[in-house]
Design a binder for these strands. Structure first.
Length: 509
RNA sequence: UCCUCCAUAGCUCAGUUGGUUAGAGCGGUUGACUGUUAAUCAAUAGGUCCCUGGUUCGAGUCCAGGUGGGGGAGCCA
């Protein structure tokens, strides 16, 4: 893909030896006598450009020497292969400064969360954030391809709604011509109506939850994919979830290798994502969490105890490393560059140990919580981690106690206190990314559950009509896009998985 | 709503039992160095120590309240 003027960095290799024009922004500058090295990014990638004093005009060289972070430039030069870095770079013959601008606030050094979030509009330009957005884009495209290739229609539910889909969660209230209206927390009920019209559908849009959650897994505004399939039961639903997850993970590994490398994502666990996800009933899952049932000869509490030991050993090793580096610096005689290198290394080790110390203090709590897990409760974050730790693929948990699940889930005829719901838990501590169910298709049962959940029946009359006119078995699921991006990119916090996160305490920029 | 931690230079942080003029690295600026890889070397500018009140001869440091933020619980995708 070419620009109106010049080419893009992503296409540099195709132009080896040619004279080309690049346009972009400066990511770094280092100079030495007679030579300036600068980094350039243009949205398609990153490359180094080299300005040698004897190859350009004196004016151009002076401009090159004065380049600052995020200056906008247009460069002309020859594409060459840099043997040292094994990368394509540009030997500049001429350059124009398009905009010099002010001193750029984000540097290549460490920054705190608050500072970065306040500068999110600029942070997005940094390589890791750039890679993250590329992963997000790839996933969105793969999701559409997966469903479109299988005959699903993408149709959009309304975002203004009159009532909650699930009575419990908090809603954002707005004013709709004088009437209270709420921002949608799920498009599912509308998805069911659309499935009765089109058979196979999916919705893909923003949803809003006014939960005052400050955790790494929650956003107030997030994007959800919600397929709904007529004539599907719970097993069909689980088959589709599995096929879907395998498809998008494979596609991303194939299409985003460069991005995952920039993100320093260890892809070992992702490469194991293939058909045959473990399917556990809620009852089995509870037994495993409590340590009553082994998986491949291993019990949850034993594995956690081993993990704790490993964490403690790593902390001790890091402390020894830190002490040695500090002693070496204190001994003197070290060059400044080496001192900086060791200081940075020490900072990294301290940060790592802080993380490990948190985990070390968490694990005994997880064990305690796992041991005392009460049958009938929903899983907490730590229970999900404990369970998935025993498997090397995403885990499906199905047939949940009716009391803790939404009113619309279908009662299991063979297990009257359970519903035909399913959650998909991602490995590596990322937890729940999919929640789905076969829907209750019996009008009388649905009416009873609306009453039992204390929901206003009149608000659901249109939904009940779906059971009055040609009701059929149907099922669907919801997938949080940002949780998927967070998991696949190996990111610590969900706020980096969306361009401009909206969360409790975060409305700007 | 609850628990817990934090706020000092543009950024990341140190700052001793409360004691003279507030410290480092990075970033900026100036200069040196002909292939740098978060380059290196030298010099230099840069501060309302979050806000309000209190204790004290004296507060960046102690106390109370507030504001902003981090992590977690609950709830969820």
């Amino acid at each position: 893909m070419s620009l109106k003027q010049g080419i893009r960095i992503a296409d540099l290799a195709e132009h080896k030896g040619q004279s080309v024009t690049l346009q972009g922004w400066i990511t770094f500058r280092r100079d030495s006598k007679g030579i300036v090295f600068a980094g350039l990014r243009d949205g398609s990638g990153f490359a180094q450009v080299v300005v040698a004093e004897d190859r350009v005009s004196p004016e151009a060289y002076q401009t090159a020497q004065s380049l600052q972070l995020e200056n906008a430039v247009r460069l002309h030069g020859t594409v060459v292969h840099n043997e040292r870095m094994n990368e394509m770079e540009l030997e500049v013959t001429d350059l124009e400064l398009l905009h010099a601008g002010a001193e750029y606030p984000i540097t290549r050094k460490a920054h705190g969360v608050e500072f970065l979030m306040d500068h999110r509009h600029l942070w997005l330009r940094q390589p890791k954030q750039w890679a993250m957005m590329r992963v997000r884009n790839r996933l969105v495209y793969a999701i559409h391809r997966f469903f479109q290739e299988r005959g699903f229609m993408q149709l959009d539910p309304p975002l203004f709604t009159a009532n909650a889909v699930e009575g419990t969660t908090t809603l954002f209230e707005t004013d709709f011509y004088g009437e209270p209206a709420y921002l949608s927390q799920s498009g599912q009920l509308y998805g069911e109506a659309l499935a009765m019209a089109h058979g196979l559908i999916y919705t893909f849009g923003p949803t809003f939850r006014a939960e005052k959650s400050k955790t790494r897994r929650h956003l107030s505004e997030f994007w959800m994919i919600e397929p709904e399939m007529a004539f599907y039961d719970l097993d069909d639903n689980m088959d589709l979830i599995e096929e879907f997850i395998v498809f998008i993970v494979r596609d991303m590994l194939e299409g985003c290798a460069k991005e995952l490398e920039l993100l320093e994502r260890d892809t070992t666990m992702l490469e194991k994502v293939s058909k045959g996800f473990p399917r556990l009933s809620y009852d089995e899952a509870v037994a495993i969490i409590r340590g009553e049932q082994a998986v491949d000869g291993r019990k949850s509490l034993d594995v956690l105890a081993e993990d704790l030991k490993a964490v403690e050993e790593e902390i001790a090793a890091n402390e020894k490393d830190i002490a040695e580096r500090e002693a070496a610096i204190a001994a003197g005689g070290m060059k400044k560059g080496a001192v900086n290198f060791n200081r940075n290394k020490i900072d990294q080790l301290i940060a790592r140990n802080k993380e490990l110390a948190e985990r070390a203090s968490n694990i005994p709590q997880w064990m305690e919580s796992a041991r005392n897990f009460q049958h009938g409760e929903d899983f907490g974050g730590s229970d999900e981690t404990v369970l998935t730790r025993l498997f090397d693929k995403p885990v499906m948990v199905y047939r949940w106690p009716a009391a803790i699940k939404a009113f619309y889930m279908k009662r299991d005829p063979e297990f009257p206190d359970y519903v035909k719901g399913v959650d998909l838990l991602a490995p590596e501590g990322y937890g729940e990314i999919v929640g789905g169910a076969e829907r209750e298709d019996d009008l009388d049962l649905l009416l009873a559950r609306i009453k039992a959940h204390d929901l206003p029946q009149e608000a659901f009359e249109w939904y009940l009509d779906l059971r009055r006119y040609g009701t059929v078995p149907h099922a669907g699921f919801g997938l949080g896009l940002e949780r998927l991006v967070t998991w696949l990119s190996g990111t610590h916090h969900i706020r980096e998985a969306i361009p401009f996160p909206r969360a409790y305490g975060r409305l700007k920029p």
